[in-house]
Simulated assay, not measured.
Amino acid sequence: MADEANRAAFLEIQGRMIEISGKLKQVQNQLRNKEGEKKRAFLTLEELRQLSDNTNTYKSIGRTFVLEPKSVLMNEQEQKLQDSETAIASLQTSKEYLEKQMAEVENNLRELLQQDPGGLESKVLDALG
């Protein structure tokens, strides 16, 4: 009876661990993408700042390039930079939360193993290996 309860608890913990690690990877990928967007916006802004105000600047829309004033392009890049920074802060908070959840689940697994080290250890090794 206790063995069956431990097995059910292990399977639940294993499911949560898989779910949390998947979410964590997703957040890390989104974070990496937003950091890339932020860097592109920053570099584009730096290049635009070096140009004189009367320089013809073009905005890429698909395969087409549209003539836009420098100020419009700078405003767009500044907005992208701010949006990226906001998203990065939010994703960082989510990442920290998921990391805490993962540590909690790992702790729960350790406690479960300490309760019944002989019976569950072989099941854990079978599930992991």
Rank of each mutant, 00 (worst) to 15 (best):
S52H: 09
K80R: 13
S21F: 03
E104R: 08
E47D: 09
Q101Y: 01
T93F: 03
S84Q: 09
Q26E: 15
S71I: 15
V105G: 01
L73Q: 13
Q101A: 00
S71Q: 14
E46N: 11
N108V: 09
V66I: 15
L109Q: 11
I61A: 09
N108H: 11
V72Q: 12
R110F: 11
K59N: 09
Q26R: 13
E99M: 02
E37I: 05
Q26I: 03
S60T: 11
D83W: 01
E96N: 14
R32K: 13
S84M: 06
P69I: 06
E96W: 00
G22N: 10
E68L: 05
N33F: 13
L45Q: 01
K100D: 04
E106D: 07
K59M: 14
N107H: 08
A103N: 05
E37Y: 02
I61P: 01
S90W: 00
R32D: 14
S52L: 06
L45A: 12
E46S: 05
M74V: 14
F65Q: 15
R49N: 07
N54F: 04
Q77M: 15
M74N: 06
T44D: 05
M74E: 15
V66W: 03
N75M: 14
K70G: 08
I88E: 01
Q82E: 15
Q114H: 03
T64F: 12
T86P: 00
G22Y: 05
N56R: 11
Q114C: 05
E76A: 06
E76N: 14
Q82W: 01
D53V: 08
L43C: 06
T55P: 00
A103W: 02
S90K: 10
E104M: 08
E99V: 06
Y58M: 10
P69C: 01
S71F: 09
L43A: 09
A89N: 10
E96I: 09
P69A: 05
T57Q: 02
K39S: 13
S94D: 02
F42E: 14
N33M: 12
Q82M: 11
T55N: 10
Q28T: 10
A87H: 04
A87F: 04
E96C: 03
E111M: 13
E78S: 15
E37R: 12
S90N: 05
T57W: 01
D53E: 08
L91I: 04
L113M: 15
V27G: 06
F42A: 10
L31Q: 08
G62M: 05
G22I: 03
S84E: 07
L67N: 06
K100N: 06
K25C: 12
I20P: 00
K95R: 06
T44E: 15
L73S: 06
E85T: 09
E76F: 09
A41C: 01
Q30Y: 08
E78L: 14
Q101V: 07
Q28K: 11
I20C: 13
L43D: 15
Q50P: 05
K100I: 00
E111A: 02
P117E: 04
N107P: 00
Q77Y: 04
G36Q: 14
V66C: 06
D116W: 00
K39W: 04
N33D: 15
G22V: 00
L73W: 07
E37L: 07
L31I: 08
Q114F: 05
I20S: 04
E85A: 12
Q50Y: 01
E47N: 10
S60R: 15
D83C: 07
L43S: 08
E68I: 04
E37Q: 11
F65E: 10
D116S: 12
N107S: 15
K38L: 14
K70V: 07
F65R: 14
